[in-house]
């Protein structure tokens, strides 16, 4: 699960804006460079940022998951490129599945680029409370509060649903329900006793939430904000550092 991990690190203390700027800076730099080594370096810098934020251990499983995905990406890409020198064939006997040096480099670059750009998001989410991200999105990026709120609420309901699912599973198991079957068709049918109660209770919950928000005046007029998140000197310094990085990478590449 990617959720906020409370710590008091340098990364945690930065303004959410700065961290959003970081994800954009990483994104920009990943597309400025074409060399897999440069992008690998960016990916390593992401890991370093996670380490500074004290969430290195928590980010590893996420990276692992993304890595599997990136391998798939390589697999899909690698046979589609026909330029360049042939390195080997995937099925040598029939000369099928030609892999070229250009194809190999291109697909590795692509998957590294995916890893480097996507891995910033969980780092951002683990070091920044959702409410702070939303506050910044509303105040600085002028996103309507309703949308920001919708987003936070959706995320905040995930653990609730997991708990609910557990309860439902237990209730059905108590009535002799068993979920272990190897038949894939049965697996589809077997989900019904779990899915329907979850759906019904989720809709009910959403309705209750909406009503309880409405009776407390949600959407009745201009909002005030309790928390103001300011920019510190560290934020400006980090932002300046990003600009320098982008400028340098533009010059180098």
């Amino acid at each position: 699960m990617v959720e906020y991990i409370k710590k008091d690190s340098f990364i945690h203390r930065l303004n959410p804006m700065t961290k959003i700027a970081w994800t954009l800076a990483v994104l920009a730099m990943c597309f400025i460079f074409d060399s897999p080594f440069a992008i690998l370096l960016i990916l390593l810098s992401n890991m370093a940022a996670a380490a500074v934020g004290g969430i290195f251990k928590n980010i590893l499983p996420v990276i692992k998951g993304l890595f599997v995905f990136s391998l798939l990406l390589i697999l899909f890409q690698i046979f589609l490129v026909t330029d360049g020198r042939t390195l080997f064939y995937a099925i040598p006997y029939f000369n099928m599945g030609r892999v070229t040096d250009v194809g190999l480099q291109l697909s590795i670059t692509m998957s590294l680029r995916m890893l480097a750009t996507v891995s910033t998001i969980p780092i951002l989410m683990m070091t920044t409370p959702m409410t702070d991200i939303a506050a910044v999105l509303v105040e600085k990026f002028k996103i309507p509060f309703k949308y920001a709120f919708m987003f936070i609420t959706a995320l905040r309901f995930i653990p609730t649903f997991i708990g609910e699912m557990e309860q439902i599973l237990q209730a059905q198991m108590s009535r002799g329900y068993s979920s272990d079957t190897k038949n894939p068709f049965k697996k589809l049918i077997i989900i019904i006793p779990l899915a329907i109660p979850l759906l019904v209770s989720s809709v009910k919950k959403a309705e209750k939430t909406a009503i309880s928000m409405e009776v407390r005046g949600f959407g009745s007029g201009p909002r005030s904000h309790y928390r103001r998140i300011g920019m510190s000197n560290a934020d400006y310094a980090v932002l300046a550092f990003f600009l320098v990085c982008i400028a340098v990478s533009l010059m180098v590449s």
Partner: peptide, 11 residues
Amino acid sequence: FLFQNPDHQIF
């Protein structure tokens, strides 16, 4: 086993 909340089982 009867649970507190019937809505956890009805489908």
